[in-house]
Simulated assay, not measured.
Amino acid sequence: MIAVISDIHANLEALEAVLAEIRRERIGTIVCLGDIVGYNADPSECIRRLRNAEALCIAGNHDRAVTGQITTEGFNPLAARAVDWTRDRLTPDELNWLAALPLKTVIDDRLVAVHGALHPDMGCELVRLNTDEKRLLSFQALAAHPSGVRICAFGHTHRIGVYEMRDGAVTAHEDRTVRLRDDSFYLVNPGTVGQPRTSDRRPSYLVLDPDAGTIGLRHVRYDASKALTKTRKAGLAPRFSRLPEPIRTPLRRVYKAIVG
């Protein structure tokens, strides 16, 4: 089996909870779709956990911004500040490790892993597959991929998604377990480990079971207060993170509308 995780964003507590569940399920291969760092306050520790777990990692846009491979143009102010903060706190070895991560790779002849999209060749880590038109372009790239694999795992949107293309028609699945067809192509997004942007604040990941021919969705519970306290102490949390939830939620929507 293969566990697919994404968008950890330096949230150590969430990552540890997810890795513990993956160990409990005795899953041998872990694939991380990038954005290991950014936003939260434990970048070194998250890198260390992934390296110790021998996870197969892809570079995300935050990872590449921290290493200076791309600029923070287009990042919201909070994200750009976290990039600068993170860069100053990583060791040269950690920066080199991030910089060496590929943008795309094929895993066990089962799936191709990317952060943002399978298209285009350049800047793919910045593309969000958040529209039917963009997903169709990546489906076309998947169908033409020289590896012949039929599954592309992507992250970046922080939203769970399993999309199937069969005979030119695309279906979005909402079931927790999706049975794979031999004549279909799939775009799958595990959601986010450490930076939720939906009403469900739990970390999530996907499990590809080739023997059963299924993709399954998992959610994990953890105490987010410790991570938030560290992030707030580092000056990386929005001011409204201190407020009670009935006030914080509408303010979060306003903040997101302003900074993206």
Rank of each mutant, 00 (worst) to 15 (best):
G28P: 00
V259G: 09
A212V: 07
A65Y: 01
A14G: 01
I58E: 04
L90N: 00
P196R: 14
N96P: 02
P246R: 12
V149D: 02
V18G: 08
L142V: 12
L118V: 06
A212R: 15
V170Y: 08
Y39K: 14
E54Q: 15
L56A: 12
D109L: 10
N189E: 06
G161F: 07
A212M: 12
W97P: 00
V106Q: 08
P203I: 15
P250V: 13
G216W: 07
D88P: 01
E25K: 06
E21V: 12
L90W: 01
A100M: 04
S138W: 03
D63E: 06
M165N: 04
L15S: 09
H219G: 03
G161V: 06
R159D: 05
A14K: 01
L19N: 04
Y222R: 09
G155M: 09
V149C: 07
G68H: 03
R64D: 11
G213V: 11
A237C: 11
R221I: 11
Y222I: 13
A172D: 03
L137R: 13
V170S: 08
S138Y: 05
T71H: 12
G34P: 01
R221D: 13
T91M: 04
G148P: 02
G116P: 01
E94Y: 10
E45D: 14
R221M: 11
I2Q: 08
A113S: 04
L217M: 12
V106A: 06
L111K: 03
I160A: 02
L56D: 06
A59K: 03
V83Q: 05
G216R: 15
K230I: 07
D84S: 14
D88Q: 15
Q69R: 14
A59N: 10
